[in-house]
């Protein structure tokens, strides 16, 4: 029992070290990489434009629900005028970065893990290496660098749309003065909150995209399956671990910044 526990712990430490080396290698490969900007723009398109609908839809519904729930709770204390503050602080500090990151993991992260897994299976990654092309620089680095920009942008969009959603349900459906709502929003959000929001978004982007790339890139190492099943298993692992790490990192960052 102890031996099994020890072996399991060692394998986790080994995998963490391997993951850290993989991410470090991706950043190191940026030095001297040819035509990196083009790949970053393409990765930005994949993570940005393609994920836009899901960010807009989820952001809108999150704001709508927050507006509804917040209004009824605040109404009990006669404090409906604070609805803007409640919606904006919830979105900027927590829900915006976390939910936007989870949506991006679901769409861009899973696609990345599956794509790299298939490229590993069909020897496309080996082909790059035989051409003398760094597979890290070509496949991973652009996605990581794009994530550092795209995640904060998507989060900002999520928050803005969420604020509109809160305004819709609070003002249009429940009769709160729009001016009261937006004034509360304006007074509630401080620059510190915005900094926290963007720090979280960039960290989540770095962690989730590197994790998804790591699992897809190493799909051939999957011990429980081979071929298509290995791709499926590595994609599932990438999405599950990324989702957990978003919430865990959210807690850690919040505890340091608050």
């Amino acid at each position: 029992m102890l031996r099994a526990l020890g072996r399991y712990s060692l394998s986790i430490v080994h995998e963490l070290g391997d993951y850290a080396l993989f991410t470090g290698q991706a950043f190191r490969s940026a030095v001297g990489a040819r035509r990196l900007w083009r790949r970053i723009v393409r990765a930005g398109f994949e993570q940005g434009v393609r994920c836009l609908p899901v960010i807009l839809i989820v952001g809108m519904f999150t704001g709508l629900v927050l507006g509804l729930q917040g209004y009824y709770v605040l109404n009990r204390f006669g404090s409906e005028s604070l609805l803007g503050a409640l919606v904006s602080l919830s979105l900027v500090r927590e829900l915006g970065p976390a939910l936007a990151a989870l949506m991006l993991v679901g769409q861009a992260g899973s696609a990345l893990a599956a794509e790299l897994g298939i490229q590993r299976n069909t020897e496309q990654i080996a082909a790059l290496e035989t051409m003398g092309v760094s597979s890290h620089a070509y496949l991973v680095t652009p996605r990581l660098l794009a994530a550092l920009v795209v995640y904060p942008m998507q989060t900002a969009l999520f928050v803005v749309v969420g604020l509109w959603g809160g305004s819709l349900s609070g003002s249009l459906l429940l009769g709160l003065e729009p001016g009261v709502y937006w004034s509360a929003v304006e007074h509630a959000i401080k620059s510190q909150d915005v900094r926290e929001c963007f720090t979280k978004a960039a960290t989540f982007g770095l962690l989730t995209i590197s994790l998804c790339a790591y699992h897809g890139f190493n799909a051939h190492r999957c011990s429980s399956a081979t071929g298509a099943r290995a791709v499926s298993a590595s994609t599932t692992r990438a999405v599950v671990q990324s989702s957990i790490i978003v919430l865990a990192a959210d807690y850690v960052i919040t505890s340091f910044l608050v």
Binding site: T122, E123, A126, A127, M131
Partner: peptide, 17 residues
């Protein structure tokens, strides 16, 4: 060697995208 050598894989290993 890598600059002066090419490898043609059994599966062709073409980039499908």
């Amino acid at each position: 060697f890598r600059r002066r050598c090419s490898f043609l894989f059994q599966s062709n290993a073409l980039f499908d995208s």
